[in-house]
Design a protein around this nucleic acid. Structure first.
Lengths: 244, 244
DNA sequence: GGGATTTATCGTCATCTTGACAATAAATCC
DNA sequence: GGATTTATTGTCAAGATGACGATAAATCCC
């Protein structure tokens, strides 16, 4: 971090969060409706300024909590990438550090501190252009989606979309929603249960649904530990891979 | 990017670069010796402040060029992650966006604009604690190394360490240096030449070295295109994987 | 000059993984 | 109480991988 001879500039820094969840078998992203200029009335990623004395992860979860009205945001939050500062905000150079949240479906309260409307939207509507995002958020969203898709291959993070306990079928639904593919239930079952250190049987089963009851699993200790660690394929061979 | 009610803070933003290369079969990292406080006399990653109106990638390659005295820095530069701004610089909150450079061995001129001493150091000396780095640069370095290692598995980026043309053995030496493993030459050859869209024969061969002359290859067009794109294992099945 | 040495390249084979899909198990639905 | 639905276990062929033998084509060394 050597000094340049030129005057160092100071930039406003924001965090933006691409929060993803799976709702009735479709991937959804959390978006707010902007109430102020610029891009007033448009959809955007939740986020906001990093405050003095605050860290990036802190700022991201604080903003997320504020804007969703949720006490503690569930799921797995990780940094995605930084964008800018040049030419991405009409008001001036702003650096943003984008984050990715993979979370179980949780209800959002539209009474955030900024009184912006917050809601889950199907990612398909963003991808096909039906929904347009402010700033460079469409690019950030695309990068986040790509990251989420590749994360599922080599990390146990698919389970971040599920609750504490889940069935193999629920887990498979996550993979199918994120990847947009169909997976063979039998091969998926073999791989999920056959991967050492991934799943742990709870001993309990579902009841009340149609069909044979399914065994309930939770993430094994090893898998919980490995979350947050960077995943090398060698150490964590592919958990699963999309077809086609 | 909605506004928070609190006063948005402005931060100095720096870029730091973890530049890696392979020199006589060992992985090396580019480090500078700091001539000013804080951490005067210590080793650190090259980098510097992002200037007004500048983008992150621009700032990173500018700083790298300035500090190495090289006109155009060779190799592949990509963003790694951001750190801070809290408590990583004794002078105050500074956000840094770390970058990763994978480059063929190139000579560095120690007459950079900041007159800091720049040189390649074996990464092993950093890993075993023989060399200590200023700020949080050791953590950034560790993250960069991990990223580089995983990049080799699913992208053609190993070739970024080689020149325009290279032999399979040179490419293998890269993988061995980065992963710190030994790879079977025969299986490596099979995999490297057998992966569609990876290598392209130039038709020419080496001469003068000991042993049978080796065929010279270059990256295939598809592989060059895919650099910079995020790599999904499915789309790009593992090029290679470490043993053990 | 010519065998020893070195490095590159091609093959072989057993093992593991994967994809396709049959068959059985255990619940609900009607 | 059988039809239906979903979960789970197996089977099998094809492809990928790791270990390693054998050959090719240079230089090295005396």
């Amino acid at each position: 971090m050597p000094e340049s001879h030129t005057q160092p500039a100071r930039f406003p820094v924001t965090v933006d969060v691409v929060a993803l969840t799976v709702r009735n078998d479709a991937l959804h992203v959390l978006l707010i409706t902007r109430l102020i200029e610029p891009f007033r009335g448009m959809l955007a990623l939740p986020g906001g300024f990093v405050l003095a004395g605050e860290d990036l992860a802190t700022a991201a979860s604080r903003e997320l909590a504020e804007e969703t009205g949720v006490g503690r945001v569930p799921g797995h939050l990780e940094q995605l990438a930084s964008y800018g500062p040049k030419g991405r905000d009409p008001r001036g150079d702003v650096l943003t550090v984008a984050h990715l949240l993979l979370a179980p479906d949780f209800p959002v309260l539209s009474a955030g501190s900024d009184a912006e409307h917050v809601a889950w939207y199907p990612v398909s509507h963003v991808l096909d252009g039906e929904l347009q995002l402010a700033f460079d958020h469409e690019r950030i969203f695309a990068d986040a989606l790509e990251r989420a898709r590749s994360k599922l291959e080599y990390s146990p993070l698919g389970a971040a979309f599920c609750g504490e306990e889940f069935t193999i079928a629920q887990l498979r639904a996550v993979y199918e929603a994120v990847w947009g593919t169909r997976l063979d239930p039998r091969n998926f079952h073999r791989k999920a249960t056959g991967t050492p250190g991934f799943l742990e049987e709870t001993g309990r089963t579902t009841a009340g649904d149609a069909g044979r009851p399914a065994a309930l699993f939770r993430l094994a200790r090893e898998a919980r530990m490995s979350i947050g660690q960077p995943a090398r394929a060698v150490l964590n061979p592919p958990l699963m891979r999309p077809r086609e």
